[in-house]
Design a protein around this nucleic acid. Structure first.
Length: 309
DNA sequence: TACCAGGTGGAGT
DNA sequence: ACTCCACATGGT
């Protein structure tokens, strides 16, 4: 008999968290809406993705209850890791009710349109790497850069082949994680440029060199209070306020972080009458107007604005 | 072709 | 402090 399938062997589908209900559209927005850059839609409608040393498939099952499966290989605790990644324990019914939608008609509309939208809890270092790639780039291009870096500088995971042609690995190869910062410090700037990073290659190269001389610096930064953590991140080459806020929001679980990019600037100009405001002014408005969960509000505004555009 | 993309850093006012 | 603009690359 001939083995024709080049698909990886996956475990069966298993329920993730019974309380967590997320529909297919919202799941797509969560995994592929600009927070993370390593998820790809498979032909069967499930999402296949990687984070840290984990790989998994996820889909919305009956009653919008999430189901997951893992690739063939050793058990590395992917189920609990996925629950943490999706922040499943934090108010599965949705944090959005705590946002000031009662006094903000536009926010209320965004929340109605995107019920269950969540903020991920990604590995901190990976989030920094991906958002160092993000400046003046489309999401699809950031995903391409991440895939190239994983393929050329990441480590193979102990799991089977990946058949998704849009993923970073070809049939018969193993999944590859994104390179860690120590791994990146072994790459030359030219190596990184070859991953289509453009001028971002220098930032990543310099950041890798900085971190290589300071073991524990990133882990300490993750533990600091928001203002101190943000200030430290902003000291890294290529990291300004926007990227620092993205790292703290999507990688550090700091829901008060309010990243201001061109979409948020546009949304605040057209929906909130803040035309002409600087990013810094908009960030201040956002934090005060939306409160301690401003980052979640930001995600609703971002997703809604991109959807109507 | 020109313009834009989940920006940042540096130079010149 | 504010305004411009280069920085690579790919898509519309």
């Amino acid at each position: 008999m001939v083995e024709v399938s080049q698909e990886p062997d996956w475990s069966g589908w298993r329920p993730l968290s019974p309380e967590l209900r997320i529909g297919p559209e919202i799941l797509a927005e969560i995994l592929d809406g600009g927070q993370a850059f390593r998820w790809n839609l498979q032909e069967d409608g499930a999402w296949s993705g990687l984070w840290g040393a984990h790989a998994a498939r996820v889909r919305a099952g009956r009653g919008d209850r999430l189901e997951w499966s893992s690739p063939a290989g050793p058990d590395v605790g992917t189920g609990p890791a996925l629950a943490h990644y999706l922040d499943a324990a934090r108010d599965p019914a949705g944090l959005a009710d705590l946002l000031p939608w009662r006094s903000d008609a536009h926010l209320a509309q965004c929340i109605r349109t995107l019920p269950g939208l969540r903020i991920l809890r990604q590995p901190f270092g990976e989030t920094l790497l991906c958002f160092l790639c993000s400046s003046a780039k489309r999401i699809a291009q950031i995903k391409q850069m991440a895939a190239l870096m994983a393929g050329r500088h990441g480590s193979p995971l102990p799991f089977g082949a990946a058949g998704d042609p849009s993923a970073s690995v070809g049939a018969g190869e193993r999944f590859r994680s994104l390179p860690t910062w120590p791994e990146l410090s072994a790459a030359t700037e030219g190596d990184l440029r070859a991953c289509r990073l453009g001028f971002r290659a220098r930032y990543i190269h310099q950041t890798a060199a900085f971190l290589a001389g300071r073991p524990g610096w990133l882990e300490e930064t993750e533990q600091l209070p928001y203002p101190e953590a943000k200030a430290r991140l902003c000291g890294l080459p290529g990291v300004g306020e926007k990227i620092a806020d993205c790292v703290l929001l999507y990688g550090g679980g700091r829901l008060e972080a309010f990243p201001v990019d061109v979409w948020i600037l546009r949304a605040m100009a057209t929906r909130y009458g803040l035309a002409g405001w600087t990013p810094r002014q908009v960030a201040h408005f956002g934090r005060t107007h939306f409160g301690p969960l401003a980052g979640l509000a930001q995600q609703y505004l971002f997703a809604w604005e991109r959807r109507v555009a």
